[in-house]
Computed example of a mutant assay.
Amino acid sequence: MAMPEENSLSLGTVLVTGGSGGLASQILQLFSQRGCEHLHSIDLRQPLRHLEGVTYHIGDLTNSDAIRRIFQDVKPDVVIHAASPKFDAPNHILYKVNVEGTKTLIQIAKESGTRFFVYTSSASVVTDGTADLKNADETFPVIVGDKQPEFYVNTKALAELYVLTQNYRAKDGHQHFLTCAIRPSGIFGVGDLVLLPGMLNVYFRGQTKVQIGNNRNLFDFTENTNVAHAHYLAAVALARFQNDTPGDDARVDGEAFFITNGEPRYFWDFTRLVWGLAGDTTRPDQVWVITRPWALLLAGLLEWVFWAFGLGEPSLTRTKVRLSCMTRYFCIDKAKKRLGYKPLVGLEEGLKKAVEDCVRRRNLEQGTATADMNDVKQKRQ
């Protein structure tokens, strides 16, 4: 399907939730670059860097009164719902924000006259944590409840299902409310606070000579500019088709879309590329390979010990073992055809910039911590 020029359609006022986070900041920046003049962000905290042209609002998605006041003031035409706690947040927080918060946001968006709603979901909503996913597409069922081992993913899946059921085309005098979901896999990039920092922590601890599994499992990763691009294309597509009802093979509203770089890599090849860009010189003959069963046993033991002594989460968990040994890559043909999606930033190009950014931020944080410690010592003297 041929796509018109991206900037040919005005989106009106756009509001992004979680706008102080890494991905949402990329979304705001990309929307701004493409001519969106009325951009707003909602987050619990102010961003580290304010983007020019963006109005920032402090608000808690679980506080319906506060969110309603912001929506009454902003009156967004488009909502990009990218806010979420980190995957390791307490379960009650994950459910309250991801599930209840999304339901509240949908209700308030409808009340305020929002027309288009794009939800940031996760490619993990179709995985049960054990079965390999090879070129998985949107026909794969969403897994929730007892069959979904990760509570974070369960809340993202429940929220996605709810968002898509709220898709509504105008009739009987009621305004349309069109929704869709974007499912990125393994997000990394400049501003990344999760994926690359976790991998680089292993490098900085000097643990790059250990590998879990045989490295025969392909895995999909996605640079965050590409994820932001997909959100933009989704919003444009919803707006373009608001007065038309395309056939099932072209429909965007009420649909979910996998988004990746389209460059699946063997998991440990990707990880060692990250480490190499940070300066690692480990040779293949220096690597000690631990089989998956032994790694799961060790991770389970560590989790029990850390739990028993109140030590938090160990560096090796059963979830990390499963992820590092799973085959998990996705088909993005649907996004290419219906959204006109194609990656803007290649995997290695994006990694070079992202690793550099991650190391720079780490050095700044360490410098601040060292300065703080020196200040404390001076005051003691």
Rank of each mutant, 00 (worst) to 15 (best):
A123I: 00
N98Q: 09
H57A: 08
N226M: 09
K156L: 02
L61V: 03
T179S: 03
F221W: 04
D269M: 02
L61Y: 13
Y119M: 06
W294L: 13
G262W: 03
T317A: 07
G262D: 00
D73M: 11
G129F: 06
S20V: 08
M199W: 13
K110S: 11
V227N: 02
T260N: 04
D280P: 06
D132L: 00
G191I: 14
G21P: 12
F71W: 05
G18V: 14
M373C: 02
G312L: 12
D244R: 14
V252S: 03
F140M: 14
F270S: 00
A2N: 06
K86W: 10
K336Q: 15
V74P: 00
Q207S: 08
V274E: 01
K75V: 15
T370D: 15
V376C: 02
Q381K: 09
G22N: 12
V227R: 00
R49Q: 06
L94W: 07
P246T: 00
E111Y: 11
G101D: 01
Y56W: 14
G198E: 08
P284V: 12
G213K: 01
Y162S: 09
G173Y: 10
K342M: 14
R183E: 01
L302W: 04
G213I: 02
L193R: 10
G145E: 02
G346K: 14
P4F: 12
G35Q: 09
V289S: 11
V163C: 06
T139V: 04
T260Y: 10
D280E: 13
F116I: 13
D280N: 09
C358V: 04
F71M: 07
S324G: 03
V99P: 14
L23W: 00
T13M: 07
Q166E: 10
L196G: 04
V142P: 07
R328T: 00
P90D: 05
S20E: 00
T245Q: 15
S122E: 03
L51A: 07
I143A: 07
V252C: 01
P197M: 12
F188Q: 00
H50N: 08
A371I: 14
G113P: 03
C325R: 04
L195N: 02
G19V: 03
V144C: 12
